[in-house]
Each structure stands twice: as structure tokens, then as C-alpha cells.
Design a protein around this nucleic acid. Structure first.
Lengths: 349, 349
DNA sequence: TTGAAAGCGATACCAA
DNA sequence: TTGGTATCGCTTTCAA
């Protein structure tokens, strides 16, 4: 039952005022460096920990965390936002304010949202980055302003962000491959659809899938990955072309979240039930297909969980100065018919 | 930028003191019901929300949360404790104190730990309950003392707990069945090992496994489940007897976390690589077997995540009066070779 | 049963 | 550069 060390205790021990201690603790410019050092050392040796509630109460200032997310697909990004809101709720008590900014789609309007957040003087920023070139310079500017940026869902390579949180692409692809190999008992023809192989996340899944198939199921035949470039049209057309030119195909691995046009093409040719389909992520149409048994399973990204982690890391950095690792990746969660109803269309963690 | 409604605002509007409003808000016994009603209504209509920081600051009460867990198997319960510690860390700053109490094993010494926690006047209690009869009466006494109890990992049915957090046993069994059925292409002989079918968690997995196999893979042959009753000896012996009497067996589903003796028996008879094995949970020896390809996969309970959720629900109940649902179940996470290295022996969420 | 007022632990302003 | 002190919103005695 030790009583907590307060700022007063530190002040008393040094014979200074609480104001001085407070200033020392928060790098106030007008303060003798020697005094500051003495205070810091004493605070440290007494094991002083600030009372965040008191700090929040007295300082009018709140900690503003900006969260920039695409509006659509809403089914996915609503979960991201919900994850942030749930994780941040208890921290409102210590003065955290979450400011959501939405932009139309991944990569569309993200710079404007970013600028808007910087203008609003957020203390930290969580963003779902798209491919736009200029985002990297946005992040650079934020870093110059000492505003930490957390990348969520996907990453901006080589940008000066605090941390990026995403699913382990490699594990996602490898798991899909392992399942596929076992489902097909190590033989058959498999196709892979992807988005854009220049995107590291997409490439990671394809590469891991291919590597795993070749290593563990060398008898299987693997077609070169189809790239959809996020175009529904392209996805649909290319899938049709693929299955028409390979009537003996046994399986398809849809390695990105927007596989709906692929599913439609497969349905069009009446292939459900005949071939084995593994997919990525979860959305209403896919849930239906899993329920019906048309799609064997899907590698779920757990958007809400990713968002929770992102918020938590940023909070801990801002409030406690805890530096996160450069990257945080989380395990994909296999969803099949058996565990589908754990997710009532939502990510419950 | 609307200013928040404070307790003072409510008091002023009614011409009463802040003390009265405060008392009304927290069900203080000595207060005229009429006054209380007036206050509550006014607070409501003004949209008053308490400032939790101020509340915590003025009531110098610390919130003590007791966490009672088995010491062994340490590999599993260390993760539970770590999950609690990580989730609670940011809340220590706002007055939450976590008190860990350990007892030797599930069901051994749990009452003593429970009593000790009650004696220490914890404000809330998270317990990993075992089968002991008397635990239910412990929980009843806690509920009389208005101390909320959260059951973690497994449940105590019909006890007056606040909430129980565990994995979705049904989903775990069904997922295993679905994988098994697909791996064996819908035919073959499958055995199931379990702990004790009177334990609802164990029964849930077996039942779901059986139901799913029968529904989706009717051509498969399913042996009656083997019960080990948590005895290594029994598990080992019974497994040997099983495989010796059924030399054509194709697969084994180990539906509980302590499957090591079963694995040893399978190894003894040199069956790895010949039969398909699905397991439950994750421990060093099992990780090794998955790595080698001897075990196809395992349904991971995510102990640390469960613990995080348990803490969070209790915290929100104590601090904000948020009532959780009666049960929280989470989806099992399939671990195979492909995503094994996302878990460096730990539950990263 | 209610009101008045003293803190809770920090910040920030005004003097010195 | 530092000290003293009002203040943040609420809980909780102590009186009335």
C-alpha cells in the first residue's frame, strides 16, 4: 500500500515549488538547465509517475489524435473506425480527443485530409495510406513538425512514420497456400488473382503463396498471378479469360480484399462447388459465399484489431514516450463456415 | 467547440449544491428521492457527462482489480498474465492497481486465492475458474459483496458473474471438422481426444466437431471421443490403445490444450506424416510438430487476447458502469506452418 | 436531507 | 528564472 509519489513530494524534497517541477517535467523553455536536471533526477529516483487525470484536468489542453480513413468500402473502414473508437473511449478521461477525417477512397483525397489534420494541429495522426506519391511528402512534413504518423492497413515504404500496422502479408499468402495444397491433396492447377504487384502488400502475399506451394506441394501447377489494378472491370474480364482458357483449373486464390468481380466471374461460369476458392478479407457477398460453401475460406485482416493496435501504439508514444517497433504485423485469421458466425459481419477481435 | 456541461451547471439550474447533484448521480442513500429524480432529469436534459478524470481525482479511491490465475502450465498462463499487464498498463496512471494472485493449477487452491482477494477488498476480480464445486459459492459471496467477477478462459455455469470470456468452443470444433473433412477429401476414419465431456467447453468442441463432420462429410467415420480427464497417463494409454486397435486410422483431432501425451503416443507408433493431426492451443512441443509438418494445424485460444478483453470489460464496468453482455466468446485462430512465425511462442493478439 | 467548503494532483498565470 | 496560487470538475466530510 505505498502512497504514490506526487509532484509535491518531489518539490518538497528539493525545496522548490511545484511550478518548477512541473516546468522541468515538460521541457519548459524558461528554466535553468541545472534546476531542470536536479528535478528530473529527483523525480526519477523517487519513482515519480505523473497523474494523468490531474494533468488533463488542470491543463485545458487535450491530446488530439487525427484518424484519416477512406469512407468506402464502408463495410471495411467502418470497422477500422469502430476499432479506433472503442479502443480510445476509456482514454477520453485522460484528455484524448479523436478527430475522424474521411476521404472518398484509398488514395483519393488523402492529401487534403492530411493537410486538414495538420492545420487542425493534431498531436498525432493515424492514416490509411493509398498509393499517392505526394503522401510521402505529407508524412515528411509531419515529421518535421514532430507530429508522429501511424500507417494503418497498408504501408508507405521508406517514409518517416512512427510505425506501420498491417497484416502479415507473407503469413497470409503462406497460410492460403498451405490450405490450398492440403485441400487439393498436393496436385492440380491453381490460379492467383492480385491487385498490383508493385504494392508490397500484394506482392508479399503472392510471393509467399507461390513459394509455399513450390516448396510443400511441388506437383501443383501454378499460373502466373493475374493483376486487377483495383479495376472491377479488369478483374472480371481477366478472370473470365483465365477460366475459359483453362477449363481444367482446380482452384483460385483471391489474394486481395476486392475479389467480388472474381467471384462473379466464377459464378457466371458455374464453377462454385467444382473448384476450390480461397479468398482474402470479409465482406457481405463473400460471407454469403462462405456460408453456402462456394468459397472454402478467407484470410481475414481484422481491421478493427489493427486499428486498436494503431491507436494504442500512438497513445503510448504520445503519453509515455514509448517507442514502438518500426513495424507491427498481425496474424491473419482464417474464416471458414465453422467459425463464420463468430463474426456477425464485424471484427470482434 | 461546445463547452461541456459540468456538474455545476446542473446544480445552478436547479438551485441546489454540487454536492446534492453528485450524490444524486451516484445513488447515495441519504437523499430525497424527489430531489434525486429532479437532478437526474435535469442532468439528462442538459446532456451532462461526468468528467472521469475529475471524478477519479477527487475520490481518492484507487481501483483494485484482482487477477487469479493458475501458475501452471506457465507457458499458457504467463500469456494470460502478460495480456492483463499490457492491457492495464496505461490505466495504472489513472489509479488502477492490478493484484495478481496465483494458485498451483486449475482448480487447485483457487478458493484460497479467491478468499484472499475478497479479504484484500478488491473492487473487481478476474478468475480462471476450475471445476471445484465451492467456487460457485465463492462467486455468490462476491456478488453479495457487490464485487463483480469475470470468468476467463473457461466458465462457471449459472454462477452470478459479470461476464465470462472464452473462446467459442463450438466454432473451434466446427472449424477443426471442416478442415479435417477437406484435408481428407471427405472420407476416412477420424478419432477425437478430449478432456472431460462434462466440462461444457470440452463438450462444446466435440459436439461441434461431430455435428459438422456428420453434416458436411457424411462418408467419414468418426470414433467416439476419448476422454483423458486431464491425466497424462490416461491420455497416453488410451491413445495407444486407440491406434493399435484401429491400424487404418486416418486422422486425430486433439480438442484440448494438453495434447502432449497424445502426440507422444502418435510419435511412438511412428504415425506422424501418415495421419492428419489437428490440435488445440499452442505450446512449445506442439509448435515444433507444426513446424515439422507432423501436425497440420491448431486452433489457438489466444490467451493474452482473452485476458485483455476480460480486463477491459471489467474496467469499463467499474469506471463507466458499462454492462457487458453475459458471455463474450472469441474466434479461435488457426495456426499452421504458414502463419506460425507470427507467434514467436506468444500471443501477439 | 442538504449546503458549504476542503481537497485530489497537476498546470499556468502573475509577480517577484 | 522561480514562487505562489487560482483553477480544472468532482467527491466527500462537516455542519446545519
Amino acid at each position: 500500500m505505498e502512497k504514490r509519489v506526487t509532484l509535491r513530494d518531489v518539490a518538497k524534497r528539493l525545496g522548490v515549488s511545484t511550478g518548477t517541477v512541473s516546468r522541468a517535467l515538460q521541457d519548459h523553455p524558461a528554466l535553468n538547465p541545472i534546476t531542470k536536471a536536479r528535478v528530473l533526477q529527483m523525480a526519477n529516483s523517487l519513482g515519480y509517475r505523473p497523474n494523468l487525470a490531474a494533468r488533463f484536468l488542470s491543463s485545458r489542453r487535450r491530446l488530439v489524435i487525427g484518424v484519416n480513413t477512406p469512407r468506402d468500402p464502408a463495410f471495411f473502414y467502418d470497422q477500422v473506425r469502430k476499432g479506433i473508437d472503442q479502443e480510445s473511449a476509456p482514454f477520453q478521461m485522460t484528455g484524448v480527443e479523436v478527430q475522424h477525417r474521411m476521404f472518398p477512397r484509398v488514395g483519393v483525397g488523402e492529401e487534403e485530409a492530411f493537410e486538414s489534420a495538420l492545420d487542425a494541429k493534431v498531436d498525432g495522426l493515424i492514416v490509411v495510406p493509398g498509393g499517392s506519391r505526394s503522401l510521402k511528402s505529407c508524412i515528411r512534413r509531419a515529421s518535421q513538425m514532430k507530429i508522429p504518423v501511424v500507417c494503418l492497413i497498408s504501408d508507405v515504404t521508406a517514409a518517416r512514420k512512427l510505425v506501420s500496422v498491417s497484416v502479415d502479408a507473407s503469413a497470409s499468402g503462406a497460410l492460403a497456400a498451405e490450405l490450398m495444397g492440403r485441400f487439393l491433396v498436393g496436385k492440380g492447377q491453381v490460379a492467383v488473382t492480385s491487385g498490383d504487384l508493385t504494392v508490397s502488400d500484394h506482392r508479399g502475399k503472392c510471393t509467399a503463396f507461390e513459394r509455399t506451394i513450390r516448396a510443400q506441394f511441388p506437383a501443383m501447377e501454378l499460373f502466373p498471378p493475374i493483376e486487377n489494378h483495383d479495376s472491377e472491370c479488369e478483374a472480371y474480364e481477366k478472370t473470365l479469360r483465365l477460366i475459359d482458357s483453362h477449363p481444367d483449373i482446380d482452384a483460385v486464390y483471391i489474394s486481395t480484399g476486392n475479389g467480388l468481380p472474381v467471384l462473379q466471374a466464377l459464378e457466371e461460369r458455374n464453377l462454385f462447388g467444382k473448384i476450390t476458392v480461397l479468398s482474402t478479407d470479409l465482406y457481405p457477398e463473400l460471407i454469403e459465399k462462405i456460408q453456402e460453401g462456394a468459397v472454402a475460406g478467407s484470410m481475414y485482416q481484422r481491421p478493427a484489431t489493427q486499428a486498436r493496435i494503431a491507436f494504442r501504439l500512438l497513445y503510448e508514444f504520445l503519453y509515455e514516450g514509448a517507442c514502438p517497433p518500426a513495424r507491427v504485423t498481425l496474424a491473419p485469421l482464417l474464416v471458414m463456415r465453422g467459425n463464420l458466425n463468430c463474426f456477425h459481419g464485424e471484427d470482434p477481435r
